[in-house]
Design a protein around this nucleic acid. Structure first.
Length: 663
DNA sequence: TCACGGAATATTTTT
DNA sequence: TATTCCGTGA
């Protein structure tokens, strides 16, 4: 026995003792790889439905289980809701520790960092965030002040100017070059646009105003120019994960690079085929440049799809196959069976709407709950007719994307009062507030704001303004601020006080439809009640406004059976449903006629259709009306989207909707 | 300087 | 079609 030769094998002891979760069993190989690579730069190229979120969630859990302080993990996502959902799931897997992970959007992260380190940038920590509309208001104001509005050559509109300035930041290119390359029709006004931009920047600085782009610019500046702060932040956020990396831009990439300065522990997750935010300055090539930014990057591809049936996936693959530039993968699935997606030709828009309603009701009968179905479209207004039809059939729905309720004039009016309370130098909000008063126009408002800027007590200053026809109203406003200054009211109480002042003004301004607007404002008070600090409310309203659209829920009964989702494709990113309808898949609408100028734009539209198609788990209906109304030509025949042109019939089954004889 | 009404015009997607 | 612009009268 003692003489017998033994061979010994080293065997790893199962790590059950060390980790609560059986990562090996719960993840596929590529996912496991991504989840367990904790140190160093990693790029996860994750196809649609390949368990990207699952991977991120498990990685958070893995990090925490490995003894990493949850507060050292930073999860940057596209919406804060996405971050919250992931952390909720991670907590479900493991325990409450995962809640302490820092998470949010680039913008909300920038917001909180900048408030904390405002001093380093000679910025007030009570700065106000301008949304796009606010930025446009400022631009319009300055444009008038500079006299650009009445030149012989018509000056561009504020929207376009704001877009130009924003694009310059998000594409990291000077205005001059951008105009030359992409806005050549503005070339005549180049000098004035540059002047206006300088004024715009100065205006914001002197009044502690930051627009969306400034948040990123200032954060970058803070990290780039202040080494001690960079060190501190980098040591604080030791494990960084960036979701939806294909929709980030060069500036955001630079921020990540600086944040990771001391450790290089960054995991970027994304899919170049799903890049749909170029109009905001995102560049899908960013994802391919990640390894250049972080030498030694480990690239992991997730190619197995767990979401969709093979026929749905085949259609997705067929759509994206013809993209002119493509870096990655063909998705495959193990999900058996499934129906071939249908291309449904409806006689006109209303037939299309009725088809959706009918099919939704049938599926509900078959046991598919409403919240497992969604209707997707290119542009928000494409669903108007459908919304009417759904109401008629008593089908409850939520609409995501499009015009948000926070963007309606009356909500912004009410919000403005809260904003000046936090930042008395917020002249944008002052402007809004004062123009509500009868008899006060831009000129008088300017005067009053000038007075206010030197004042220590707002209410007193307003009361002391020399008598004018509108003095009574001004005193009422002063009274409001006096009351708001008293005690420590909650944001909801403050808002209620504001509404008492605002209601008469609202009724005067909108004699016909003020009841609807008042209802919105009550809704707003309810939202405010969730906050204890006004600052948090204000930041959220600017950065993460409630995603419900204005014409919101037809709240029949939002019981467990839930609501049907209507959504723009952009707002449907990352989500999935049992059944998906895509409507208005017509050339000119999808791709949008405004995006047919360049190949880049057209390619982005193609990716958009790809994103839409890959949201479906089981059923996919691609719909279009054969006859549609065109303002110029009246009723015309439509042509299905060019992206469907060469798709064979076995990948997309073409059917025509005919009216069944009444039963 | 303000308010209002008629004319011009661009028209999507969002932090 | 809805918004923004621009001129007019108060």
């Amino acid at each position: 026995m003692a003489n017998e030769a033994h061979t010994y094998v080293l065997r790893t002891i199962p790590q059950a003792s060390r980790f609560q979760l059986d990562y090996h069993r719960l993840l596929n190989e590529a996912q496991y790889d991504a989840v367990t690579t904790l140190e160093g730069p990693v790029l996860v190229v994750a196809g649609a439905g390949s368990g990207k979120t699952r991977t991120l969630v498990f990685r958070v859990a893995r990090l925490v289980e490995s003894g990493v302080d949850p507060r050292a993990i930073l999860l940057l996502t596209f919406t804060r809701k996405a971050a919250a959902e992931m952390l909720r799931r991670a907590s479900g897997l493991l325990d409450g520790r995962c809640d302490q992970v820092a998470g949010g959007t680039f913008h909300s992260f920038a917001n909180s960092v900048l408030r904390r380190y405002a001093a380093a940038l000679e910025l007030s920590s009570s700065f106000t965030i301008l949304d796009r509309g606010d930025a446009e208001d400022v631009i319009s104001l300055l444009r008038a002040r500079l006299g650009f509005d009445k030149k012989d050559k018509r000056f561009p509109r504020k929207q376009l100017i704001a877009e130009l300035y924003s694009m310059a930041v998000n594409k990291s290119r000077p205005i001059e070059r951008l105009v030359e390359e992409e806005y050549s029709h503005l070339a005549d006004h180049l000098d004035d646009l540059v002047t206006l931009h300088r004024e715009y920047t100065a205006y914001k600085t002197s009044r502690h105003l930051l627009d969306y782009d400034d948040l990123l610019v200032k954060l970058h500046e803070l990290l780039a120019a202040h080494a001690p702060v960079r060190e501190q932040l980098s040591r604080r956020h030791v494990y960084i994960m960036v979701d939806e990396y294909q929709d980030t831009n060069a500036l955001q990439a630079a921020i990540v690079r600086l944040l990771a300065a001391t450790h290089d522990n960054v995991m970027a997750v994304g899919d170049d085929a799903q890049s749909i935010y170029a109009f905001r300055g995102a560049n899908f090539r960013n994802i391919m440049d990640f390894p250049k930014l972080f030498p030694g990057t480990r690239v992991i591809a997730l190619e197995q799809n767990y979401r969709s049936t093979q026929p749905v996936l085949d259609l997705g693959n067929a759509i994206i196959e013809k993209a002119t530039e493509r870096y990655t993968k063909i998705l495959f699935t193990n999900r058996p069976g499934g129906e071939t997606p249908l291309l449904v030709a409806a006689h006109n828009e209303n037939f299309q709407s009725r088809f959706v309603c009918q099919r939704v009701l049938e599926l509900r009968e078959e046991g598919v709950p409403l919240h497992e179905m969604a209707v997707l479209f290119r542009s928000s207004f494409h669903s108007f007719d459908l919304e009417i039809e759904l109401s008629r059939h008593d089908i409850p729905f939520v609409k995501r994307g499009g015009f948000k309720f926070i963007e309606t004039a009356h909500v912004k009016d009410a919000l403005a009062h809260l904003r000046v309370l936090a930042n008395p130098r917020d002249s944008v909000s002052w402007h809004r507030i004062l123009l509500l008063i009868e008899g006060i126009g831009p000129r008088t408002a300017e005067d009053i704001i000038a007075q206010l800027s030197g004042a220590t007590n707002v209410a007193e200053c307003l009361e002391q303004f020399p008598p004018r026809p509108f003095s009574t109203d001004l005193r009422a406003l002063a009274g409001l601020f006096r009351r708001l200054g008293d005690g420590q009211p909650t944001p909801a109480e403050q808002l209620a006080e504001i509404l008492r002042y605002y209601e008469p003004l609202l009724k005067r301004k909108h004699p016909d439809d003020h009841p609807k607007r008042l209802k919105d404002l009550e809704h707003f008070v309810a939202i405010a009640a969730r906050y204890r600090r006004a600052e948090a409310l204000l930041a959220d309203m600017a950065l993460e406004p409630p995603s419900d659209s204005v014409n919101d829920v037809v709240a029949v009964d939002a019981d467990e059976e839930g609501l049907l989702t209507l959504s723009t494709i952009h707002s449907a990113k990352g989500l999935e449903w049992h059944t998906v309808f895509i409507i208005w898949v017509v050339d000119g609408k999808f791709p949008s006629a405004y995006s047919m100028g360049t190949t880049e734009e057209l390619e982005e539209e193609r990716r958009l259709l790809y994103v839409a198609a890959t949201r479906a788990k089981q059923n996919l209906y691609v719909c279009y009306p054969v006859n549609m109304y065109d303002r110029a030509a009246g009723m015309v025949f439509s042509k299905p989207s060019r992206f469907l042109d060469d798709i064979p019939g076995d990948a997309l089954h073409r059917v025509r909707l005919v009216e069944a004889p009444e039963a």
